[in-house]
Design a protein around this nucleic acid. Structure first.
Length: 815
RNA sequence: GCCGAUGUGGCGGAAUUGGUAGACGCACUGGAUUCAAAAUCCAGCGGGAAACCAUGUGGGUUCGAGUCCCACCAUCGGUACCA
């Protein structure tokens, strides 16, 4: 075989010289913006996962280009974040140094892969020319009231003296030292994503996304309709609301539960119960993370000593606190109906609280408690006999009339906590002044540069706090001495708008030009792992809507179509990991075989959306395929100057039919990210060409040549270097990547022959071969003239005859 | 528990969306070539002697089901007391 890494290098150099992948915003063709989720440059090299995401996606972009679109296919780096910082803590190598070095290596490797990127349109989120605009976005959100600061519980490791991100909490323990993580309240910055909860939910309908991913977002947003009901203290000096989706069960309330963290608790607890309540609050704060992982954990709680009045029936019920009630959902307080809620039931049993049944089954059947389904109201005074749905409306109406309740919608979605007490991130552009309070950094002073020389070993404080140079500043309002915010932004903020920056990556005046992005957006195809279904993909949607409302762009959703690639597992079927020793490195394969063979194998051996365990035996099959192609080209070259023979017989027709069929199905397959079948189809075409050459006594050389040229074009997006090399051998001077995707000749495609199956009672009996271009009527005629069919018709009593024109013929006979 | 995905030969995986199940490839078997081997080429390759039986299991709808409906099983992901 001639193909090797050398050929890759030869063409990469040439393409670079010719600026083959230069993006022209005013280029011909309809715009097509396709991108993959950019990568985090944590390791020094591209791993198999990168390859599996990027190589097929690149083939897709190349295909779209051949189809005549003006393709924009950028790539960048999500360069801020914890791994680099942790690596720095471990090795002493500064995050900036390691990150920039990794980016250079990865860029080089992406080029070696044959990626069709234009690096003039790229972003690196850790560079000031990018994070200046991340900060600018923060400023805009702050000015719009969409960024705010408040006390919030964070994950705290008391041994590392640091705040941990949720991802760093493994089974309730610190990922680094294994210490149990505590909840601690700290002042944190938030983005008001909850304001967009409903729109984020509604927008999903308009998107061409996998249903499962939409479902994840629906659950994440967690809309729930119900009622808010006011319970007043028996003494009348306080009141609070509970949220419930089952207000129809309100007559069955036997107690009320408040979250232990709720401020209300201090207010209502009686002196006698104070000691017990305080002790319980302390315990929950400590045990929280670990214990909340277990739903099997027995419910615990304590009585506050307080009583409240049920606004519907005037009953006096006790108020408890229990950690199964969460502070930050609903109102942080619930009405407990043990007869009709499993959690309340368990709790009531444990603490001997009364259980009162108020719902019966609608069909009169015997029920067992807790009965959580809807039914008919009983023991509910004037509401007796109503269905649950009727009662919900009626009771809420009655309460509303008295000002003691209302309809209410709750979302599970919480505001987005964006501050991190970490070094390697974009500084939050906020200044604290004794005189003026919280002041946002004016646009002209951006970016707030991240200082290089900082002690970033964790000790419980934001590393930036230790840099006097950074912290001390002057107030932009009064000019007096002031201090900077020491926290940095969550990296998800950086990645929540990068697709807007790509087309304008070098704009020093604006984050992005409105006209430009309006023209290119939304992204036609976004490709990346489904692990981002909830976080990243919601944040980008949120940011798009915010920037739209602030007038910076004119579309509602960032990503029209979303594709998730699968995951390549280790040869043992497990997730690849260094500790399991089942990792596979692309490098040695590229070195040995060249990048196209690796790319083609990756695409051929797996379902793109599914992935699967790595199996290197498959690579040899691809080597074989490439050699067969090379041999075909050599063979064809001997024909080049031969005379052409214009005879078009059945064999030629058949070859032309397969050629056109291949153009069609490969186009459809690549468009659907079904690279495995696209390559299978290309193999079929090769087999057909070989068969034709082998079996023809008189070759129609013109047809062979044309078919081979078409074949190379079909291969061009899938094996860019290899196809270009063969193209050159065929004495072509213009790059194959400037060629158009071949057109289908309908007439040729419908030529040749096809087999029509003949069934008896739905079971295949024989096939009748007909000319593919025959009319359905003639096909039926031919079928009926077939001796075997005549025999069946004569020997059986035919009850029914089904003929799907040109597809299938089925006879129903009496048995 | 809830939500989601998947289940087809020895293996990776196909089936135009209700119409020839197993495309394409790997592995395997036989043959050609070779002194021999590798490579290559050709042929075969779900089970069964056959009728037939076969797409996780059991039902159903249909002329016809891998595909649609009902019930269940298994595996893998996600999620975690959301009132």
């Amino acid at each position: 075989m001639n193909y090797s890494k050398k050929i890759d290098a030869k063409w990469q150099e040439k393409w670079k010289k010719e600026n083959l992948y230069k993006y022209n915003p005013n280029g011909e063709g309809k715009k097509f913006y396709t991108m993959e989720m950019f990568s985090y440059p944590s390791g020094a090299k591209l791993h198999l996962g990168h390859w599996f995401n990027y190589a097929p996606s690149d083939s897709y972009a190349r295909f779209k280009k051949m189809q005549g679109y003006n393709v924009f296919h950028p790539m960048g780096f999500d360069a801020f974040g914890l791994p680099a910082e942790n690596y720095a803590i471990k090795t002493g190598i500064h995050p900036e140094d390691s990150t920039l070095k990794n980016i250079e290596t990865m860029k080089m490797q992406l080029d070696e892969m044959g990626g069709s990127y234009d690096w003039d349109y790229s972003v690196q989120t850790c560079m000031p020319d990018y994070y200046k605009w991340t900060q600018w976005i923060f400023v805009k959100l702050y000015e719009a009231g969409l960024a705010y600061k408040k006390e919030a519980p964070v994950n705290w490791c008391n041994s590392c003296k640091t705040v941990l991100a949720n991802e760093q909490v493994i089974n309730g323990q610190c990922e680094r030292c294994g210490t149990a993580v505590e909840r601690k309240k700290l002042a944190q910055w938030f983005f008001k994503i909850t304001k967009y909860a409903q729109e984020l939910l509604d927008g999903l309908d308009t998107l061409d996304w996998p249903e499962s991913t939409k479902k994840v977002q629906i659950n994440w947003i967690g809309r729930s309709e119900g009622s808010e009901v006011t319970f007043k203290g028996e003494t009348g000096d306080y009141e609070f609301n509970v949220f419930t989706t089952r207000v129809d069960t309100i007559n069955g309330v036997t107690y009320v539960v408040v979250a232990p963290e709720s401020e209300l608790v201090q207010k209502i607890t009686t002196p006698e119960q104070k000691e017990e309540v305080d002790k319980y609050i302390k315990e929950t704060a400590k045990l929280n993370e670990i214990d909340r992982l277990s739903t099997e954990r027995p419910k615990t709680g304590v009585f506050t000593g307080a009583y409240v009045i049920n606004p519907v029936n005037g009953n006096k019920v006790p108020v408890w606190i229990a950690d199964y009630v969460l502070e930050d959902y609903g109102t942080g307080a619930v009405m407990a109906v043990p007869a009709h809620d499993t959690r309340d039931y368990a709790f009531a049993q444990k603490y001997n609280l009364p259980i009162k049944k108020v719902i019966d089954s609608a069909d009169g059947q015997e029920i067992t408690l807790p009965f959580t389904e809807k039914g008919i109201l009983v023991e509910s005074g004037k509401y007796n006999g109503l269905t649950s749905e009727e009662a919900k409306n009626k009771i809420t109406e009655d309460l509303a009339a008295k000002g003691e309740g209302k309809k209410s919608i709750n979302y599970r979605l919480k505001d987005w906590l964006v501050s991190r007490q970490r070094y390697w991130g974009a500084p939050i552009p906020i200044i604290y002044c004794d005189k003026c309070g919280t002041v946002v950094v004016p646009e002209k002073d951006l970016p707030v540069l991240l200082p290089y020389d900082v002690e970033f070993k964790p000790d419980g404080e934001s590393p930036l706090k230790k840099s006097q140079e950074f912290m001390n500043c002057t107030c932009p309002k009064c000019g007096g001495p002031a201090t900077r915010e020491a926290d940095t932004l969550d990296t998800f903020v950086c990645s929540s708008w990068y697709e807007l920056r790509y087309p304008d990556a070098k704009n020093s005046e604006k984050a992005f030009e409105r006209e430009t992005i309006n023209k290119l957006a939304p992204i036609d195809t976004y490709i990346g792992g489904k692990e981002h279904a909830a976080m990243h993909l919601i944040y980008v949607r949120f940011m798009t809507k915010v920037l739209r409302d602030l007038g910076y762009l004119d579309f509602d959703e960032p990503f029209k179509k979303l594709i998730h690639q699968g995951m390549i597992l280790g040869p043992d079927g497990n997730k690849m990991s260094k500790s399991k020793g089942n990792t596979v490195s692309p490098e040695e394969y590229i070195e040995k075989y060249g990048s196209d063979i690796f790319r083609m194998y990756i695409m051929f051996g797996f379902d793109y959306r599914q992935g699967g365990p790595w199996d290197e035996k498959g690579i040899d099959s691809m080597v074989r395929y490439f050699s067969r192609i090379e041999r075909l080209i050599e063979q064809v070259l001997t024909l080049k100057n031969a005379k052409t023979d214009m005879n078009i017989g059945p064999k030629e027709k058949e070859l032309l039919r397969v050629k056109n069929q291949t153009i069609k199905s490969m186009g459809e397959d690549i468009n659907n990210f079904q690279f495995n079948t696209a390559i299978a189809r290309s193999m079929e075409l090769l087999n057909k060409i070989n068969e034709y050459i082998r079996e023809s006594k008189q070759l129609n050389e013109k047809i062979v040549l044309e078919t081979v040229e078409t074949y190379m074009k079909l291969l061009a997006p899938l094996a860019p270097h290899f196809a270009e090399e063969q193209w050159e051998k065929l004495s072509k001077t213009e790059s194959i990547h400037k060629q158009k995707w071949p057109e289908i000749n309908k007439q040729e495609m419908d030529g040749g022959t096809k087999d029509i199956p003949v069934q008896v009672n739905g079971k295949l009996k024989l096939c009748v071969t007909v000319d593919a271009d025959m009319s359905p009527e003639d096909i039926l005629k031919k079928i009926k003239e077939t001796p075997k069919v005549i025999e069946i018709l004569e020997n059986n009593k035919i009850k029914k005859e089904i003929y799907v024109p040109g597809k299938i013929y089925n006879l129903v006979v009496e048995k």
